[in-house]
Simulated assay, not measured.
Amino acid sequence: MPADARGALVKPVNGRLMATWMPLSGPSRIPPGRVRLAWTPAGADRMDVTAHLGLAGAQVLLALWPGLRGEWSGVVRPTVAEVTELHAALRLATAVLDRMAD
């Protein structure tokens, strides 16, 4: 991860993770429904990876994968995809309920 980045905003696209760097100089807020991954070296060929989820009113720790080796996107991708899809489903359900209440 570049020294001037706080992490990468990621989203699943066609079974792959697409990433956009979040610069340290920019806002730290994670957009609702998006996931920010950050990683730091944890020894020889190992990375500590964290994922934070942006919600409407907060950012929450979604997952922590300590000491991952080698190509770790396969470990992280299922969680990012599932949480992104769950967030979209909850937003849709909320919109439907709001309409029904009106």
Rank of each mutant, 00 (worst) to 15 (best):
P2V: 04
P2N: 04
D4R: 11
A8M: 07
A8W: 11
V10G: 00
K11D: 02
K11C: 06
P12C: 12
V13T: 11
L17Y: 10
A19Q: 13
T20A: 13
T20L: 09
T20V: 14
T20M: 09
T20G: 05
W21Q: 07
W21G: 06
M22Y: 01
M22T: 04
L24Y: 00
L24N: 12
S25E: 13
S25F: 08
G26T: 08
G26C: 03
G26P: 07
P27D: 10
P27L: 03
S28L: 02
R29V: 15
R29A: 13
I30L: 05
P32R: 02
G33M: 06
V35K: 01
V35P: 03
A38K: 03
P41L: 14
A44L: 09
A44S: 15
D45M: 14
D45C: 08
D45Q: 15
D45V: 06
D45Y: 14
R46S: 08
M47P: 00
D48R: 05
V49C: 02
T50C: 02
A51T: 01
H52D: 15
L53Y: 04
L53K: 00
G54T: 01
L55F: 04
L55S: 01
L55E: 12
A56I: 14
A56P: 08
G57Y: 02
G57E: 13
G57V: 07
A58I: 05
V60H: 02
V60P: 02
V60N: 05
L61R: 13
A63G: 01
A63S: 09
W65A: 04
G67N: 14
G67R: 12
L68I: 09
R69A: 15
G70E: 10
E71M: 06
E71T: 06
S73C: 06
G74V: 04
V75I: 11
V76Y: 06
V76Q: 02
R77V: 05
R77P: 03
P78T: 08
V80C: 03
A81V: 00
V83A: 10
V83S: 08
T84P: 03
L86T: 12
H87I: 04
H87G: 00
H87N: 09
A88K: 11
A89F: 05
R91E: 14
R91S: 10
L92T: 14
L92E: 15
A93Y: 10
T94Q: 14
T94P: 01
A95I: 01
A95C: 05
A95M: 06
V96C: 03
V96W: 11
R99W: 12
A101E: 13
A101H: 14
D102A: 15
